[in-house]
């Protein structure tokens, strides 16, 4: 028997930690479903007003988009909040730096572990309930599901790699709440939480595509639902990998600079 790799163990720790909050997960599910039906009412009306299709979406594919996006809300970080921000503010981050680990990687891996757990009580039930109540169109070949699953985990990771940047700004700012709220407003909109970004006017779509947000949620959904297939889906996945690398690199540089700056608060 060999020792378990530290970061894999942290992923599991995050997963297990999240399992302690079952009531909160149930509350989250109820909220996801409520807003899911609201989106159904609005977006189905849009599709019908467009004569049955809008930008390639029909009722079945719009439903798939709605319920998968709702189901991912508990896993993709669109709130801009992670524990690290509080740990920097209170000085508890000292404990993180006293471990023989890369603080950035350890933080992100733990958060991704939490997010993966949330797929069980929030993700899967959202999709299942949506499919049973209003129906949805999903691919019939395995390809989109395989690449979709990888793309989904990548999207979740990009969201935490980006929120990490918001938290680590706390080394320079006493209060990161303003930045967090800015993230929350932009991310939901550009990630395609409210409407699919292909319904945006062209100029706004260009703006959205210049941010990491569509890579968190929109692209994984496009791949998973088979809206984008073949080489085009591989292209979207490559864009995701690019954003992941960019966010991790910026985070790395900020962590190094932050360590120079680090003045751990409190005694």
């Amino acid at each position: 028997m060999v020792a378990i790799h530290p970061y894999i163990r942290l992923l599991k720790a995050g997963f297990r930690q999240q399992s302690a909050y079952r009531l909160a997960a149930f509350g989250g599910l109820v909220a996801n479903l409520t807003f899911g039906f609201l989106k159904v009412a609005m977006l189905f009306a849009t599709v019908r007003a467009g004569g049955g299709t809008v930008q390639g979406y029909d009722i079945g594919s719009m439903s798939a988009y709605i319920w998968i996006s709702q189901g991912l809300l508990g896993s993709i970080n669109l709130s801009g909040r992670i524990d690290l921000a509080d740990r920097i503010r209170t000085g508890d981050v000292a404990v993180d730096f006293l471990r023989p680990l890369d603080v950035q990687l350890a933080t992100i891996v733990t958060e991704v572990g939490r997010a993966l757990f949330a797929l069980i009580p929030r993700g899967l039930p959202s999709v299942a309930i949506g499919a049973l109540t209003v129906g949805m169109t999903m691919p019939t070949t395995p390809g989109p599901y395989l690449l979709g699953a990888v793309s989904l985990v990548t999207g979740i990771t990009i969201s935490f790699a980006t929120v990490y940047l918001v938290a680590i700004a706390g080394f320079w700012l006493i209060e990161t709440r303003g930045l967090q709220i800015l993230y929350m407003v932009l991310s939901g909109f550009f990630a395609g939480l409210f409407v699919p970004i292909s319904l945006f006017p062209t100029w706004l779509l260009i703006v959205a595509e210049a941010t990491p947000f569509p890579s968190m949620m929109m692209y994984p959904i496009d791949i998973l639902t088979g809206r984008v297939t073949g080489w085009a889906s591989a292209g979207l996945f490559l864009v995701q990998l690019g954003w992941l690398a960019a966010m991790l690199l910026v985070g790395r540089l900020l962590t190094l600079a932050g360590r120079r700056k680090l003045e751990v608060q409190g005694g």
Binding site: A3, I4, H5, P6, I8, R9, L10, A13, R99, P100
Partner: peptide, 18 residues
């Protein structure tokens, strides 16, 4: 780890220290 049993914190730390 606040939400986990004490034993599990020791397991995680063992992994962290390899």
């Amino acid at each position: 780890w606040w939400d986990l049993p004490v034993r599990e914190s020791f397991e995680i730390l063992s992994a962290i220290h390899r």
